[in-house]
């Protein structure tokens, strides 16, 4: 009897330990969210979102160029990685058993594991050096390389789940293969592919390392893709590590904007997955 009691106590102790260590996670999350919201909320207003950063000591600083720049970089990354990634996903699905497909899968896996800073180096060597300077397009390409594996994975996994009967139904009607893929299979998997794309966007939206020596940052507003641009993570990094308190305030505000965007996207994705 005693032994059973002892075992039950041990079990209870283990449960308490589990609950405790789970709550340990709550603390940093709570603290991080608390600091970002409480510091960020005081600086965010319409002017903050629509004006440019200012030198230290000048009032009315904003992050408009970083928001536009982030949009521009994500746009370039998406425009490159989504069609390419979906095509690769289709390829893997269709030529599943070929040697080329195994090679492609391996490459996607390796690409996904490459540290973001290394991607930044590659984009620098490929784009910045030949163009002779930092640019939005080099940053966008770096982000595209990071997004690509996620789009490919999402496409392949989604297409795998689409019942074969759907493809048969379409082909059986005399619909050519390419139309079957484009009009039936891809739309049937649109939700899953979109989920992958949104997760990819959420990930690259917060990426800083590959932008340090590609997009580089820019105190001014620009939509010229051959010029350096600012982005939310870059402005957070540069201002947070600066010695000026008002710049640090701007960084808190930018952090709040970024985190609302990223977490909003991931919540949106979760509801998509549930559907």
């Amino acid at each position: 009897m005693n032994r059973v009691a002892f075992r039950l106590v041990k079990d209870l102790g283990f449960r308490i330990y589990l609950v405790a260590s789970t709550s340990v996670l709550l603390i940093p999350l709570g603290l991080i969210l608390y600091y970002i919201v409480s510091n960020g909320i005081t600086v965010i207003n319409w002017d903050f979102l629509t004006s440019l950063p200012k030198p230290p000591g000048v009032l009315g600083a904003g992050i408009s160029n970083a928001i536009v720049g982030s949009g521009l970089l994500i746009g370039i990354a998406g425009a490159l990685s989504i069609p390419f990634g979906v095509a690769i996903g289709l390829f893997l699905n269709e030529f599943s058993e070929t040697h080329l497909a195994s090679a492609v899968r391996l490459c996607v896996e390796v690409l996904q594991g490459i540290p973001s800073i290394v991607i930044g180096i590659v984009a620098y060597l490929w784009i910045v050096v030949p163009l002779g300077g930092f640019s939005a397009v080099s940053g966008g390409i770096a982000l595209a390389l990071m997004m690509l594996p996620m789009v490919v994975r999402a496409t392949e996994e989604t297409l795998k789940l689409i019942p074969h009967s759907l493809k048969e139904a379409s082909l059986g009607l005399g619909v050519p293969y390419y139309r079957t893929m484009i009009k039936i299979i891809v739309p049937a998997g649109a939700n899953g592919i979109l989920t992958g794309v949104l997760l990819g966007v959420a990930r690259v939206a917060g990426e800083t390392a590959p932008l340090l020596f590609t997009a580089f940052g820019n105190p001014f507003m620009t939509v010229n893709i051959t010029q350096p641009v600012n982005s939310l993570p870059l402005i957070i990094y540069n201002f947070a590590t600066s010695p000026y308190p008002d710049w640090q305030q701007v960084a808190w505000g930018a952090s709040l904007v970024l985190i609302i965007f990223v977490l909003g996207l991931s919540l949106l994705t979760r509801t998509l997955i549930k559907r």
Partner: peptide, 16 residues
């Protein structure tokens, strides 16, 4: 396939 139609074992209407 346009001349020779086919109906399969399991009903497979296009769900969308």
């Amino acid at each position: 396939r346009r001349e020779i139609g086919m109906v399969f074992q399991r009903p497979n209407p296009f769900p969308t």
